[in-house]
Every structure is written in C-alpha cells, then in structure tokens.
Amino acid sequence: MRSRLALVSLFAFATLALGAGRARAVDPPPTVDRIGERVMCLCGCVAILNHCPHQNCSMHEEMRATIQKAIAEGKDENAILQLLVQQYGVKVLAAPPAQGFDLAAWLLPGLGLAVGLALVVMIVRRWRKPGEIPATAAGGHDVDPKLLAAVEEEMKTSGMGIRK
C-alpha cells in the first residue's frame, strides 16, 4: 500500500508541476517578433511569419508593417490578432482560436490523455489478481517440463527475466 501511495504521489507531483506551467505572469507588451511567432506568413511558404524562408517576401513585409502599425496605435496582442484575422481570415492564426468548433482542437488531446489514463487504470484493475502470487508457472504451454525448468534455470542464472 505504501509503495502504491509513493507512486501515486510521484505522479501527482509530476502532473501538478506540469500544470503549474500554465499559470504565467502578465503578458509583456506586444512586439512584432512576439506576434510574428503566433501568426502564419501567407505568401505560400506555410511557415510561421517569423520563419518565412523567402527573402524580400512581399507578404511578409506587408504583414509585419500591419502589426507594427497596430502596435503604434497602442493595441494589445489579442486586438492585433483580431485585426489580422479580419484582414486575412482565420487561417492567419498559427493555432486555432479556443472557441466554437475550434475548441475541439484544444480539448481532444487532453481528453485523449484522460481517456487513456482511465483505460490504463481499468486494465490494471482487471488484471490485478486478488491475494498472493501463485507459484505455478505460465500454464497452457505444450513444453517438456524438464526443458522448461532447464531454460528457466539458465535464465535465472544469467540475470534475464523470469517468465512466471
């Protein structure tokens, strides 16, 4: 029981610690570079705006200028993203907005993780046998018991796992 507690608490610690990463401090003021990481370049390069591999890319410069202007007007990061969506469509955002149907994009990975965990817990429970470990070897094998014993002896002395 204690060992189980220890493992559970280790997991809880890891999970909590990971979750804490979400709670960040207040966003710093917007910069072109910061916003440039959150939107796509629409020149056809299919890259994040900051990562567009084309030099003197017209789209790239135009979009950065738009962002620069909006920053100068004192807009905050979300307002600027809104503006870009109005201008270029929702595909400009490098990640889907967390609303409406697009919320599914964000929720399902977490849901998958949770369902997976539930499945693992279920399997562990079903597999767990009550009480002591029986001393019998794996049943249903059509093997000469003498040979089996010899192989197991060999495995035991060699440090490999024992099939029991």
Binding site: E37, M40, K91, P96, G100, L108
Partner: peptide, 26 residues
C-alpha cells in the same frame, strides 16, 4: 494529440467550411 492537430485543418474544413492553421504554437 499530434495526429489530431495534423488532420484538424481537414476536419475543420469539412465541418465548418473554414481551413484553420494548426501550427507550432498549438
């Protein structure tokens, strides 16, 4: 999670008729 993010643009296009981008920030 990775598969879902990768094919989400196709799903979004089919369901709401809009292609969204699912990129590095996601």
């Amino acid at each position: 999670a990775v598969l879902w993010g990768t094919i989400f643009p196709i799903i979004s296009k089919a369901v709401q008729g809009v292609t969204v981008t699912v990129g590095a920030p996601f």
